[in-house]
Amino acid sequence: MTGAETSALLGPADIRRLAEELDVRPTKKLGQNFVHDPNTVRRIVSTAALDSRDVVLEVGPGLGSLTLALLPAVERVVAVEVDPVLAERLPKTVADRAPTLADRLTVLTADALRVTADQLTQPTALVANLPYNISVPVVLHLLAELPTMTKALVMVQAEVADRMAAAPGGRTYGVPSVKIAWYAEARRVATVPRSVFWPVPNVDSALVLLTRRPTPDADREAMFRLVDAAFAQRRKTLRAALATWAGGADQAAEILTRAGVSPGARGETLTVGDFAAITRMAGKARP
């Protein structure tokens, strides 16, 4: 990073001033909690292990705290913001505080749950403070839609972070854990205090680092339906939980046995590889 490639980060007073200027009142509906601590956004950029060639996708840039920290570190930032008022103001904030970096920013006014690859510039990384209420669906959608995205660092509710990064065998392991594992290795890497946000949320936050890996040898949509069925009734054995999915408990037991999985096991004990094996076997068993 050269001396010219710097930006003036936003502090608490800057965040309040911008919000007042725009008449922005953070809403729970949009999951808006703005980061106002420069040290936190620096820490996020450092933890993401970015390099100057990365094209970073940022979802929900809000008032621009993280955007300003990202721009000096990468080739380009593509910011997807659903709020048109915030999306319109972001380029001006960057031009005011980091004029030499303004040409590195592209802002797209769109819903991250519906954005498509052809709207973006082949991002290599996702770095975002995600709205709590849609964090897992957004991550899954972007991993599916953007094969060029090889890594991600997302800030989410701490409880969600635990589920995203959970390993088989624990109570937090479930549908999000398996579906994330289809695409990437996920690790919870840091806790973020509530005090760095405005307004202060009533839950803790955490950073989850995702590293893309080869997907299993199975049909993704079929496997995701299997995973949904396996965890719909967590207390039941897979033989019982998958009865409707397989067309009967005996058929479920047969598919499981052929896949090398005990019919008496429960979904939370299976790896993503186990679910892929069951999916492949189910495909062979059905006409």
Score class of each variant (00 low, 15 high):
167 A>C: 07
97 R>F: 10
64 G>L: 08
7 S>H: 07
5 E>G: 12
70 L>Y: 07
10 L>A: 08
215 T>L: 11
102 A>K: 09
230 A>F: 10
202 N>L: 13
59 V>E: 09
278 I>Y: 05
140 L>Q: 01
228 D>L: 09
154 V>E: 05
232 A>C: 10
286 R>G: 06
258 R>I: 15
69 A>G: 04
175 V>H: 05
138 V>R: 00
187 R>G: 03
17 R>P: 04
70 L>D: 07
41 V>T: 15
234 R>C: 12
60 G>K: 04
104 R>C: 09
213 R>H: 13
56 V>M: 09
1 M>G: 15
189 V>T: 05
131 P>N: 05
11 G>N: 12
104 R>S: 09
79 A>I: 04
75 E>T: 08
208 V>W: 10
74 V>I: 10
250 D>M: 07
131 P>H: 02
114 R>M: 11
125 A>D: 11
249 A>K: 07
74 V>A: 07
159 E>W: 04
183 Y>K: 01
186 A>T: 04
161 A>L: 10
10 L>P: 01
47 T>V: 13
141 H>M: 03
161 A>M: 05
73 A>E: 14
276 A>L: 08
224 F>T: 08
182 W>N: 05
8 A>E: 14
225 R>H: 11
284 K>I: 11
90 L>E: 05
23 D>K: 10
222 A>D: 14
4 A>E: 14
106 T>G: 07
78 V>N: 00
30 L>W: 15
84 P>H: 03
147 P>C: 07
242 L>N: 03
42 R>I: 11
103 D>T: 12
123 P>K: 02
32 Q>L: 09
166 A>F: 11
106 T>K: 11
112 A>F: 00
61 P>N: 04
283 G>V: 13
79 A>T: 01
53 R>K: 14
76 R>I: 06
65 S>I: 10
135 S>N: 01
186 A>Q: 03
183 Y>I: 03
100 T>D: 14
225 R>E: 15
99 P>M: 12
42 R>W: 14
75 E>N: 06
283 G>E: 13
